[in-house]
Design a protein around this nucleic acid. Structure first.
Length: 336
DNA sequence: CGTGCTATCCGGATTACCTCA
DNA sequence: AGTGAGGTAATCCGGATAGCA
């Protein structure tokens, strides 16, 4: 499922309209999943059966149900640039990303994970793996998750493990809550920055590296994606709210302007007898044009958008400058 | 080729636990 | 010490998809 919200695709067109398009789509999720080895799933599935867990996470489309808000990233005259983090979701989950591919950056968490894959069968204890991991993540975390002991590592003593782990046989009804150690959380975070989704191998490797259960890694990623999306939604909501306020303000101003013009018409009906070309609407740039002075540079991006049709009158300049927030390049992905 | 079944994954909603003010 | 709020790990459920018979 995809929720696409596009805003301002016509903004390049002098911002005459603010279009909010909300679309719900489906069916893209599995495009990355085709061709994935079944064996990978079975490896994990086997572990799952042993543990009696629920569904395991598996790398599918990296952006399964991303809420895509194709909003203008930066609207200078609005004065509220799109928060950088708001782009994080998409940035971190590019379409078509091959989660099976090791990241190009050598010193990544995934490099560690990839290393782990090689010795997947041999590394019996995560501790052994952990010892090798910190070095290949440039500026990485000194991980010693096995030594977390205490409340950090669930594997440590198994007591920390959730229902998914050895905790299963302690009654079952009580679900103990694992608290990931800072190192574990940081490592997962680093991993998430590179891939917001995991394929089975990565999951297993990561779990091994962190001395967690694959299921726990999967759950962490799921929750992390949910948090990201929630945050993204909040940011987008805030942005839209500001857009709405700005547009409301502009609408108010235009209404006032219209009233003034009407009053002018009443007081000086003479003007109304002028040729129609004196005050006309340019069909291409949708701006008021007249035969008087050339447009002021204040028109900004608007003027640049339609250099052939300078709004000459001061009113037009005012009209244009008021819309200067529409000067953004307006990527408008969906617009034609 | 179409269909039913199974397995798997994921998102969304929710629960339950833990920490902290 | 008790408590409520917030964070988050874990669970449940439904939808979607792939593989297979």
């Amino acid at each position: 499922m995809e929720l696409g919200l596009s805003l301002g695709e016509t903004m390049a067109d002098a911002g005459r309209e603010l279009v909010l398009g909300l679309g719900v789509g489906a069916g893209e999720r599995r495009e990355e999943e085709t061709g994935r080895g079944r064996r990978d799933q079975e490896v994990v599935a086997g572990a799952r059966r042993d543990l009696g867990l629920g569904a395991m996470g598996c790398g599918s489309s990296p952006e399964p149900t991303t809420m895509r808000l194709a909003l203008l990233p930066l609207v200078p005259s609005l004065g509220f640039p799109w928060p950088s983090e708001s782009r994080h979701l998409e940035a971190s989950t590019p379409r078509g990303f091959d989660v099976n591919q090791a990241p190009s950056t050598g010193g990544s968490a995934w490099a560690c994970a990839a290393e782990e894959e090689e010795q997947e069968d041999t590394a019996a204890v995560a501790g052994a793996a952990v010892s090798s991991s910190p070095n290949n993540s440039g500026g990485s975390f000194p991980m010693d998750f096995c030594a977390q002991g205490g409340d950090g590592a669930p594997g440590g003593g198994g007591g920390g493990g959730s229902r998914g782990g050895s905790d299963e046989d302690d009654g079952g009804s009580s679900r103990k809550k694992l608290r990931l150690s800072k190192e574990q959380a940081a490592f997962l975070e680093e991993s998430f920055k590179e891939h917001s989704t995991l394929n089975p191998k990565q999951k297993v490797a990561l779990a091994k590296q962190l001395n967690l259960l694959p299921r726990q890694v999967e759950v962490w990623f799921q929750n992390r994606r949910a948090r990201t999306k929630l945050k993204q939604t909040e940011v987008d909501c805030e942005y839209l709210k500001r857009c709405c306020e700005t547009l409301t303000e502009e609408n108010r101003r235009l209404q006032k302007e219209l009233a003034e013009l009407r009053a002018l018409k009443t007081v000086h009906p003479f003007y109304m007898h002028l040729p129609a070309t004196t005050l006309s609407m340019c069909p291409s740039c949708e701006r008021v044009a007249s035969n008087s002075a050339p447009a002021s540079a204040a028109a900004g991006g608007i003027a640049a958008a339609a250099p052939e049709h300078r709004p000459p009158s001061s009113f037009a300049a005012l009209f244009s400058s008021a819309r200067s927030f529409t000067q953004a390049p307006a990527p408008a992905p969906s617009s034609s």
